[in-house]
């Protein structure tokens, strides 16, 4: 698969070599940034699939916040350092969010690193999604139960009747049952 990659590196010679290596491997370097002064604009314009960044280049906090707000479209980041901080890197490669690489990125190392980072990233995102879905389902069930309780109590419905009413309303308005239940609770002033 061909990836659109953004390079952030203060060392132009090094980033030129990296760009060539990535290009040879079939990827496209959509932007090469030196100081990070234009990181925001470039990110917006280029929409890269992956960012490869020198750890000592400013702009990491910018990327981190973008990941926080764009939970739907996170991008993997590879951070590399020319300092031989093996322990640091080993420890900091956590949860598969960012891949750290020590001692620069040489031409022969770049491809496996990009592939591994992409794979780990996908794995991690899948896990996160799964967790989120489980949590949502749990929350939804609670809300629906609460709404059923209200209908049973206030309208004297049976549990099944209450559920059928929620379901019918949801279908006729093209909404999720949990959202109908939430609306009902809001109308009753029963959410926080």
């Amino acid at each position: 698969m061909s990836l659109r990659i953004m390079l952030v590196d203060q060392d132009s010679a090094r980033s030129a070599i990296l760009e060539q290596a990535l290009h040879d491997a079939g990827h496209q370097v959509v932007a090469r940034i030196k100081h990070g002064h234009n990181l925001l604009r470039e990110l917006k314009e280029c929409q890269p699939d992956m960012v490869i960044m020198d750890l000592e280049a400013p702009g990491r906090d910018t990327l981190e916040q973008m990941r926080e707000i764009s939970r739907d479209q996170p991008r993997p980041i590879i951070l590399f350092s020319n300092k031989r901080d093996g322990d640091y890197i080993r420890q900091a490669v956590q949860a598969g969010v960012s891949a750290y690489v020590v001692d620069g990125l040489s031409q022969e190392r770049i491809m496996p690193i990009v592939e591994v980072a992409m794979a780990r990233f996908r794995e991690f995102e899948a896990l996160k999604r799964e967790l989120h879905e489980t949590k949502t389902q749990l929350a939804d069930r609670k809300v629906v139960d609460k709404a059923k309780g209200i209908l049973m109590q206030r309208k004297g419905m049976s549990e099944d009747e209450a559920y059928q009413l929620l379901r019918k309303t949801a279908m006729s308005r093209n909404m999720r049952i949990a959202d109908v239940a939430r609306t009902l609770l809001t109308l009753e002033g029963l959410t926080d």
Binding site: P58, D85, A92
Partner: peptide, 12 residues
């Protein structure tokens, strides 16, 4: 250069 770097380096 970044708060994330401080966090990570203290972390490790």
């Amino acid at each position: 250069v970044s708060w994330a770097n401080i966090r990570d380096k203290v972390f490790a």
